[in-house]
Design a protein around this nucleic acid. Structure first.
Lengths: 201, 201
DNA sequence: TAAAACTAAAGAACACTGTTCATAAAATTA
DNA sequence: TAATTTTATGAACAGTGTTCTTTAGTTTTA
C-alpha cells in the first residue's frame, strides 16, 4: 500500500520544484517582477497547476520568506559561541550586516517588502524575534556589568535601528555616490564609530 | 498674439491636474497599486493623453517624488534657527522622524522605493543631500568642540543610519508587536538613548 | 474666406499580469 | 473492465503599461 506514500512524494517533489524555481525568480526579479506564468514556464507546467499547491502568489512567497528568515536567524545565533557578551553583541551586528550584504534580496524580502494583509503575522514574528535576540544579548551584557544605566528595550531598538538602517541604505544602493573602495572603508568606520558609543557606557 | 500663451497655460493646467490626481493615488495605493488608467479615469481623460505629458509612469512618479523631497528638505533646514550645533543636530533627528511619521508614504517613496534605471540619479541626489546635511551640522559641532575624536563622514552615516532605520521600522509597521501607547514611549526612550551616546563624546 | 498645417485627444490593439473554472486526461480503486 | 478520484490544463476574465493610428478641432498660411 505504498501508493499514497508515492503520491505524496510526487506531490512534495513538484511543490519543491515550484519553490526552487520561484525562489530563483523572486531573487532575480523581485516580488512584482516575477510572475506565476514565468515560474510555470520554468518548471514546464501550466500556471493553473501552481494554484493546486499554493493558494495564491502571496502564499508561495510567504513560504520562501519563511526559509530565508530561518537562514538569517541561524546565521545570527551562531554568534553564541563567543563568551564575552559585549563582543557577542558586536559579532551579532557584524553578522547581521554581512548577511544583508551577501543576501541583499533575502534581506529585502524579509525586512523591506511591504506587508500584505494575510502575511502581516509572519512579518511581526520576524521583527520580534530579531529584536528579542538583541535584547537578550543586552541583558547578558548587563549581568556582566555593561550598560547598567540603559533599558534593554530602548537600547535594543537603538542598536537594531542603526544596523537595519545601515544595511538598508547600502543594499538599496543609497550610498552609491561614494565610490566602492571608499564605501567599504566608510562602512567599517561607521561600525567602529557605533561600537565606540557602545563601549562608552 | 496671446494664443501660444493660452495654449501653454492650458497645457500646464492639465499637467498639474495629472500630477494632483497621481499624487493622491500614489499616496493612497503606492506605486504599483496606482494605475495610469485609474489616474485617467479620475481626471476624465483617456490613458493615452497622460503619455502626451509624461514619458511613462516612472517619469510621472519622479516628478512627484521631486516635490516630496523638497518638502522634506525644507522641513529639515528649518532647524537652522537653533544656535547650538549639538541641539541643532538633535532637532534635525527629531524633525526627520516626525516627517517620516506624518508623511510615511512620502518618506517611503523617497527613501525606500526601489530605484529604477532612469531615476537612479535622483535617488542618489536625495541621499547625498541628506547625508551632507548631517555631515555639515557635525562639522559645526566640531567647531564648538564636540565630537573631536570622530570623523564627520562616519559619524554622519552612524546618525543617519540610526534615524533612517528607526523611521523605516516604524513606518513599515515592523514595531506593531508593541502596543501603540507603549510604542510611543519606546520610540522616545530610544531617541534619548541615542542622544545620550552623542553627548558622551 | 478657403485650404493647409498642426496639434491635442482618443480608440483600439499588443503583450503582459493574477486568478478561476469547466473540461479533459490519467491513475487508482472496486 | 468500469467507476471514481486525482491531477493537470486551456480558455477566459478583468486588469496592467504602453504604442500607434485615426479623428476632431484649432491655428496659420495663401
Amino acid at each position: 500500500m505504498g501508493v499514497k506514500e508515492r503520491k505524496l512524494r510526487e506531490k512534495t517533489k513538484l511543490r519543491k520544484k515550484i519553490i526552487k524555481s520561484a525562489t530563483k525568480l523572486f531573487l532575480e526579479q523581485g516580488y512584482e517582477g516575477a510572475s506565476i506564468r514565468m515560474i510555470a514556464k520554468d518548471i514546464e507546467y501550466s500556471p493553473a497547476t501552481i494554484y493546486l499547491h499554493f493558494k495564491d502568489k502571496q502564499a508561495l512567497f510567504s513560504v520562501i520568506i519563511e526559509e530565508a528568515f530561518s537562514l538569517f536567524k541561524q546565521n545570527l545565533e551562531n554568534a553564541k559561541i563567543i563568551a564575552d557578551p559585549l563582543s557577542r553583541l558586536q559579532e551579532l551586528c557584524k553578522r547581521y550586516i554581512r548577511f544583508a550584504q551577501k543576501e541583499p534580496l533575502y534581506y529585502e524580502l524579509i525586512f523591506l517588502e511591504r506587508a500584505s494583509k494575510d502575511q502581516e503575522g509572519s512579518h511581526l514574528r520576524y521583527t520580534k524575534l530579531t529584536h528579542d535576540l538583541f535584547i537578550q544579548t543586552i541583558q547578558e551584557c548587563k549581568k556582566s556589568n555593561y550598560f547598567l544605566s540603559k533599558h534593554p528595550e530602548s537600547l535594543g531598538l537603538t542598536i537594531w535601528s542603526f544596523i537595519h538602517g545601515l544595511a538598508t541604505l547600502e543594499l538599496q544602493e543609497r550610498l552609491d555616490y561614494v565610490d566602492p573602495s571608499q564605501r567599504t572603508i566608510l562602512l567599517e568606520e561607521t561600525l567602529k564609530t557605533f561600537f565606540s558609543f557602545l563601549r562608552s557606557v
